[in-house]
């Protein structure tokens, strides 16, 4: 086991890790539903930029990957959870990039729209009931950072869970048997399982 990894051994310090995995996957899956709704722009005619399409398609893909784990966290498969862990880690990295990009988008485009010109005047009329611009900014950044920090913590919980699976003899994977079994499987399942095997190898390198 890599000694430099100081991963959480309990979820929130007092709950078993599998409950953390259940919460992490549940919360993340709910967030990933955004892809399903974003893609509906195809039918509504709302214009989307290239990066928005990438975000929504990636959300749908990661939704599918995480959904496998939501049904198996109490009797986990190392292959499935390695794939989830790797996908979640990539997703965390991409989310940080998307967040930076869309933060820049919001504050460069939205703040220059004509409606902003009326803000100061409106705020003068009702100075005591509408939040100040600085409060709005602080709360937006707070929500953004809180969601990113929660996501990072969930990533560590997942890493710790997969590390636990890797160390547990019960969940060892016999590659030969897996490969043999794959011969009778359809192509998509072979590709999917080979991806899982690759993720398992990466997970081993990262966590053990």
């Amino acid at each position: 086991m890599k000694t430099y990894l100081n991963l959480p051994k309990r979820f929130l310090g007092f709950l078993p890790l599998y409950i953390g995995v259940e919460v992490a996957l549940g919360v993340t899956i709910l967030n990933k539903c955004s892809g399903l709704f974003g893609i509906l722009a195809l039918f509504t005619g709302h214009p989307l930029e290239f990066l928005q399409w990438v975000l929504y398609l990636w959300s749908i893909f990661s939704f599918v990957v995480y959904a496998q784990g939501l049904f198996t966290y109490s009797k986990p498969s190392l292959l499935v959870f390695s794939q989830i862990f790797i996908a979640f880690s990539i997703d965390t990295f991409l989310t940080c990039l998307f967040t930076l990009w869309f933060t820049n988008q919001w504050y460069t485009l939205e703040d220059n729209t004509p409606t902003q010109k009326s803000i100061a005047a409106a705020a003068m009329q009702e100075p005591n009931q509408g939040a100040s611009q600085s409060f709005e900014f602080v709360m937006t950044i707070f929500i953004t950072l809180a969601s990113l920090i929660a996501r990072l913590y969930f990533n560590f919980v997942l890493a710790s869970f997969v590390q636990g699976l890797l160390q547990h003899p019960r969940y060892m994977v016999d590659y030969v048997d897996v490969e043999q079994e794959l011969r009778t499987q359809p192509v998509w399942k072979r590709v999917w399982t080979r991806t899982q095997i690759r993720c398992l190898r990466y997970s081993k390198q990262l966590l053990t």
Binding site: H46, Y56, F102, T103, E110, A131, I143
Partner: peptide, 15 residues
């Protein structure tokens, strides 16, 4: 607050 939710939504979900 009137801007927090649309801003957070754009930042977290792209639009």
């Amino acid at each position: 607050t009137v801007k927090v939710l649309p801003a957070a939504e754009t930042i977290l979900y792209g639009d």
